[in-house]
Design a binder for these strands. Structure first.
Lengths: 301, 301
DNA sequence: GACTAATCATGCTTTTTTGGAATGGATATA
DNA sequence: TATATCCATTCCAAAAAAGCATGATTAGTC
């Protein structure tokens, strides 16, 4: 079997035109070199060198072989460098998944800082449910998730790092009667139609809101048109119902909408990063940035 | 030192996602495989695989490494194939050198046949003196020479394969008085100016003609304008002198020229192939073709 | 919840490969 | 002719690699 060592030996002999000199340059004895070249020639089935009185010269076949083989060494080094960069987090792709209720724009600040710190890195964003995030991160399909708590599905391969709480707001159509109120309580929403917040089996924002309502003795009433996507705020603006959303979401959609704070102390939305136990360097870096941003928010809120 | 074996092992594990399966596919024991991968990882300085319960998975770094390294195997095979083709004479370049008095057109038939037999081969033609041919063929700068005899320089690294003799003709301007004669003898050229044929120290056609004249007791008289290139026939046509040339040369220049045979029995031009002792396959093939063509010519002439 | 099966890692021994020193053979140089 | 140079060969020792047996961990199962 041809070895890289043989090829390196061959290139050295070809360059220097002499077994003796090449052996000196390679810090091996000349007979060892002779034998490796002989083995290589035997393996290839043709002679690489013409042996002459003062040194050797490449045969045409040897010359052609050299032209093709000379790049291999460089390719291997390049591959090793590439791998080292990826391993160190100097370059690579961060596959970031996030919940609908944590829109990408609310992550923009962290993303920008991340891209500045890692100029050779890329980010692939994907918006998927909090539950799926656990599966994808555990399965290695995603590097980090930003999920809305509670998350029901657990996996020993992932851990959660909680982020700052943020207050929940009531989103109302600007024409809604309750907009006259400066603040609201959850109990007052008992008979109002929700355009979101539903399945008890699922986690995320819907689960959170449902639980808060249950704690106050009622099941949130569903509007006739219901959505679980960001566009639910459009339904609210259209007057089809109300929604309880985290503060962040109020930052991205305003036309025709009015937000009112909830006086309830427990009306807080919780979120967390979903990380694999052995996070990639890029994921670690992003998590660090998110962690830095968490504290000021926590203190502030 | 990273070895090709390690890389082949790595690619197999990466493809199958399992040490056990890869070991089976490679016909080695699983521990041997484990160790080689471990060594490779240590050498590279980063982990290639995430070890998981049911098999392994490439790390991002391992994936990048694989993408770059996967071509290496193919490159080495391609290089070996290229070399084998060159060694077998299936492809390559035949560096053919020839004397001025054996113009390329007179070799066209052999060249055509050669190119048909070796469709992937190329020919580099060069016109150099017979003496230089010996040096270049001996020094490996040319693969085969077609020389006009006699060749004075000898070299133990080359051998000569004589080709068919061909009659010498006298080239005259079409206005020359001697054109009235159907044939001539060398002795009749005693006082006529030669536009070529000169240096006694050199070989080739010039040497041959000079020797023939000397054998008849005179030194050929030089014309006032002398050339050693093919264009000497232009000088003859212009009436500046006469020339004694092999029959082949009469086939390539006719305007304003008349050729007359020499009655002298020894007025024969000899030529030979100059071959290295260990000729390349392409040179051997070309020599074979030339050899085939020699015999009919010999019989005919 | 213990058991089984599967997978990769480790320790030890044997085989294979590789390298080094001495030597031989061929060839150019003085 | 003698000498120096260069590559090939032989023999022996060292290093590397493979195989076998076994350990450790984890997923799936009853």
């Amino acid at each position: 079997m041809i070895s890289l060592k043989q090829i390196r030996y061959f290139l050295s002999v070809a360059e220097l035109g002499s077994f003796t000199q090449a052996a000196a340059a390679l810090f091996v004895a000349q007979p060892a070199l002779s034998r490796q070249i002989a083995l290589l020639e035997k393996e290839l089935g043709f002679r690489l060198f013409e042996r002459e009185a003062r040194g050797v010269r490449l045969t045409p076949a040897g010359s052609g072989y050299r032209d093709r083989v000379v790049a291999v060494d460089g390719m291997l080094s390049a591959a090793a460098d590439e791998g080292a960069q990826l391993a160190s987090g100097e370059s690579g792709v961060l596959r970031l998944v996030h919940s609908s209720s944590i829109p990408a724009v609310s992550l923009l600040s962290a993303i920008r800082q991340f891209l500045v710190e890692s100029p050779n890195a890329r980010i692939d964003l994907d918006r998927i449910s909090s539950e799926t995030q656990v599966t994808e991160v555990a399965g290695g399909k995603a590097d980090i998730g930003i999920a809305r708590l509670p998350v029901l599905r657990r996996d020993s391969a992932v851990r959660f790092v909680e982020l700052a709480d943020e207050p929940l707001l009531v989103a109302l159509s600007s024409k809604h009667p309750l907009t006259r109120r400066a603040s609201l309580s959850l109990g007052e929403l008992r008979d109002l139609p929700f355009v979101s917040a539903v399945h008890r089996e699922r986690g995320g924002l819907a689960r959170l809101v449902t639980d808060l309502c249950l704690r106050r003795g009622f099941v949130p009433k569903l509007a006739r048109v219901v959505s679980r996507k960001t566009s639910m705020l459009d339904l609210v603006a259209a007057g089809l119902g109300i929604a309880v959303v985290p503060q962040r979401m109020s930052e991205i959609a305003g036309d025709g909408l009015v937000y009112r704070p909830l006086v309830d102390a427990d009306a807080q939305a919780r979120s967390a990063m979903v990380l694999p136990l052995r996070a990639s360097p890029l994921a670690r870096r992003f998590a660090d940035i998110m962690g830095q941003k968490k504290d000021p928010a926590t203190r502030a809120g």
